[in-house]
Every structure is written in structure tokens, then in C-alpha cells.
Simulated assay, not measured.
Amino acid sequence: MIFKIDLLDAPSIQLDCAYLSDLHHLNDWQRTRLIRALEQTPSDAAELRE
């Protein structure tokens, strides 16, 4: 089964944040992990409006 996750929700799930707004409070290690995940996200992973 395949689930579609919103582009902005995916990082918060990967980093175990309860809310998307928690991404603002990441430590350096978590930010590095987030940057790497975003760099690996294909450009067609979400619609342009998202």
C-alpha cells in the first residue's frame, strides 16, 4: 500500500516532530539530516503549488 504524504509533512515525520512548527527548533544534527533529505527529494515529488 502506498501513502501520499504532503511535502511539508514528510520532514516532520522523518525527524519525529509532533508539529511542522517544531522544525524551527531543530539542533544542528537534525538540520543537517533535514537538508540531506530535502536535497534527495525529486523535484516532481509534489505539485508546484504545494
Rank of each mutant, 00 (worst) to 15 (best):
L8P: 00
R49S: 02
Q40A: 15
D44N: 11
D22Y: 10
L15Y: 05
P42E: 09
D16P: 00
Q14G: 04
H25L: 14
Q30W: 10
Q30K: 15
M1F: 00
W29V: 13
N27T: 06
I5P: 00
E39F: 08
L48F: 08
R33Q: 15
S43C: 05
I5N: 02
L8D: 06
S21P: 00
D28N: 15
I2E: 04
I5R: 02
N27V: 10
L23A: 08
A46I: 00
F3K: 04
A18L: 14
A18Q: 12
I35S: 13
N27L: 10
S12M: 13
I35D: 12
I13R: 14
S21T: 08
L23M: 03
L38K: 02
L15W: 06
H24D: 14
Y19L: 11
S21K: 15
H24Q: 14
I35V: 13
A45W: 05
E47I: 05
A18K: 14
L7F: 06
K4L: 04
S21G: 03
A46H: 05
L7P: 00
L20E: 07
N27R: 13
D9Y: 02
L26T: 08
K4H: 02
T41S: 07
E47Q: 08
H24W: 07
D44L: 07
L20W: 03
W29K: 13
F3D: 05
P11L: 04
S43H: 12
R49C: 00
D16Y: 01
P11W: 01
F3L: 11
H25I: 04
E39W: 03
D28V: 15
N27S: 12
W29R: 11
W29Y: 11
T41N: 04
L38A: 14
R33K: 15
A18T: 04
S12T: 03
A18D: 10
D22P: 03
L23E: 09
Y19D: 09
L20R: 13
A46T: 00
H25F: 14
I5T: 07
Q40E: 13
L23P: 01
D6S: 01
C17Y: 05
N27M: 09
Q14V: 05
R36F: 10
L23N: 02
R49M: 03
E47G: 08
L34S: 08
T41V: 09
E50M: 05
S43T: 05
I2T: 06
M1V: 06
E39R: 14
A45R: 00
S21R: 15
H24G: 07
D22T: 06
L48D: 10
C17K: 15
L26D: 09
T32L: 15
S43E: 06
S43W: 07
D22I: 03
W29E: 12
R31G: 08
D22V: 03
H25E: 13
L8E: 02
R49V: 01
S43A: 05
L7A: 11
Q14E: 04
Q14S: 07
T41P: 00
D6K: 05
R33N: 10
T32A: 13
D28C: 07
D44K: 10
Q40G: 09
